[in-house]
Deep mutational scan, measured.
Amino acid sequence: KWEEIAERLREEFNINPEEAREAVEKAGGNEEEARRIVKK
């Protein structure tokens, strides 16, 4: 599940997989929260 979210974030925000994974981890697997983290 987290991998899927990280993949979507990576494609959408054009970030590297590591950044995407970190955002999802910080968000506890919550996609909306992960998006907010990435946008900062």
Rank of each mutant, 00 (worst) to 15 (best):
E3K: 13
A27L: 01
R36D: 11
W2K: 06
E31I: 12
R10C: 09
P17D: 10
E4Q: 13
E3V: 13
A20Y: 02
A27M: 03
I5D: 00
E33M: 10
A34L: 01
W2V: 07
E11G: 07
K39H: 09
V38I: 15
E31T: 04
E11P: 05
E25F: 05
L9T: 01
A6D: 02
A20P: 00
P17V: 15
G28S: 11
E3P: 08
E22F: 05
W2P: 06
K1V: 08
G29H: 03
V24W: 04
E25S: 11
I15L: 10
E25Q: 10
R8A: 08
E19A: 14
R10N: 08
P17Y: 15
L9Q: 00
I37R: 07
E25W: 03
E12H: 05
E22K: 09
R21F: 13
K40H: 12
E18T: 10
A34H: 00
I15K: 04
W2M: 07
E31N: 03
N16D: 12
E32H: 11
K26C: 06
E32G: 08
K40Y: 04
A34V: 02
A27G: 05
R8E: 03
E12Q: 04
K39T: 14
R8Y: 01
V24E: 03
E22H: 13
R21I: 13
L9E: 00
E18N: 11
E33R: 08
E12R: 02
A20S: 07
E33G: 06
K39Y: 02
I5L: 14
I5Q: 04
R10P: 02
A23R: 00
K26M: 13
G28P: 00
E12S: 03
P17S: 13
G28I: 10
I37F: 01
W2S: 05
I5E: 03
F13N: 10
E31P: 07
K39M: 11
A6P: 01
N14S: 10
W2G: 05
E11T: 09
E4W: 06
N14K: 08
R35P: 02
N30I: 11
A34E: 01
E33F: 03
E18Y: 05
A6F: 08
E11I: 08
R36L: 10
E25A: 15
N14Y: 06
E31F: 14
K40V: 13
E18V: 11
R35W: 01
G28L: 14
R10S: 14
V38R: 02
V38T: 04
I5R: 02
A6G: 04
I15N: 05
K39W: 01
E18L: 11
E31H: 11
E7S: 12
E12Y: 04
F13K: 06
K40F: 04
E7V: 08
I15Y: 03
P17M: 15
E25N: 10
R21N: 09
W2E: 05
E4L: 08
K39I: 15
I37N: 08
L9M: 05
L9H: 01
E3H: 15
I15W: 03
E11Y: 08
E32Y: 06
E19D: 13
I5W: 02
G28H: 13
R8Q: 05
R21G: 06
G29P: 01
E3A: 12
E25T: 12
E4M: 07
F13P: 06
N14E: 13
E4I: 09
E3F: 11
R35A: 05
E32M: 09
E3M: 12
A27Y: 00
G28N: 14
N14G: 15
I5H: 01
I37W: 00
L9S: 00
G28R: 13
A27N: 01
W2F: 10
W2L: 07
E7H: 13
E12M: 04
I5N: 01
E19Y: 08
E11L: 09
G29F: 06
E19F: 12
E19L: 13
K40E: 15
N30R: 07
N30H: 08
G28A: 12
E32Q: 13
E7R: 14
E33H: 09
E12L: 04
E22W: 06
R36S: 13
E12I: 03
K26Y: 05
E19T: 11
R21S: 08
W2Q: 04
P17G: 14
E11A: 10
G29N: 04
W2Y: 08
N14I: 04
N16I: 07
I37S: 07
F13Y: 09
E19V: 13
E32A: 12
K26F: 06
I37A: 09
A23W: 03
E22M: 14
R8M: 07
A27K: 01
P17K: 12
K39Q: 14
L9C: 02
E19I: 13
N30W: 07
E4K: 10
I5C: 03
R35K: 09
E18K: 07
I37K: 05
E22P: 01
P17L: 15
P17W: 15
E31Y: 15
I5Y: 04
G28M: 15
E12N: 02
K40Q: 11
N30M: 07
E25M: 10
E7T: 15
V38A: 12
E4R: 08
A23D: 00
N14M: 08
L9G: 00
E31G: 03
G29I: 02
E33Q: 09
G29M: 03
I5M: 11
R21W: 15
F13D: 08
G29Q: 03
I15R: 03
R8K: 13
R21A: 13
K40T: 14
P17N: 10
K40D: 12
G29R: 02
E12T: 03
A27V: 04
E7Y: 01
F13M: 13
A6S: 09
E4G: 07
E11H: 10
E25P: 00
E11R: 10
A20C: 04
K40S: 14
E4N: 08
I37T: 06
N30A: 09
A6E: 11
R36I: 12
E33P: 01
V38S: 04
E11D: 15
E19M: 12
K1F: 13
V38Q: 03
E33T: 10
E11C: 07
N30P: 00
E4A: 14
K39S: 14
E3Y: 09
K40L: 12
V38P: 02
V24N: 00
K26G: 06
R10V: 14
G28Y: 09
A20E: 01
E32T: 10
G29D: 02
E11M: 09
I37Q: 08
A6K: 05
R21D: 06
E19C: 13
E7P: 01
K40G: 14
L9R: 00
A27H: 02
F13S: 08
R36Q: 10
R10H: 07
K1A: 14
F13Q: 08
K40M: 12
E4D: 14
W2H: 06
E31R: 04
I37Y: 02
K39A: 14
N30K: 07
E25D: 10
I15H: 03
K39E: 13
I5A: 05
I15Q: 05
N16K: 08
G28F: 13
E19P: 03
E12G: 02
R8F: 02
V24R: 00
K26H: 10
R10T: 13
I5F: 04
V38N: 01
E3I: 11
E3L: 12
K40P: 10
E32S: 11
F13T: 10
A20D: 01
E25R: 15
A34M: 01
N14Q: 13
A23Q: 02
I37H: 08
A20N: 02
V38H: 03
A20I: 06
F13H: 10
A20G: 03
N14A: 07
W2I: 07
G29T: 01
E12V: 02
E18F: 07
A20L: 05
I37P: 00
E19N: 06
V38E: 02
A20M: 02
E22S: 13
A20T: 03
K1N: 15
K1D: 14
R21P: 02
I37M: 06
L9W: 01
E7G: 11
E12D: 15
E31W: 14
R8G: 05
K1P: 12
E18P: 03
R10I: 15
L9Y: 00
R36V: 09
R36P: 01
L9K: 00
E32V: 10
E11V: 09
E18S: 11
E19K: 07
W2T: 06
I15A: 06
N14L: 10
V24K: 00
K26W: 05
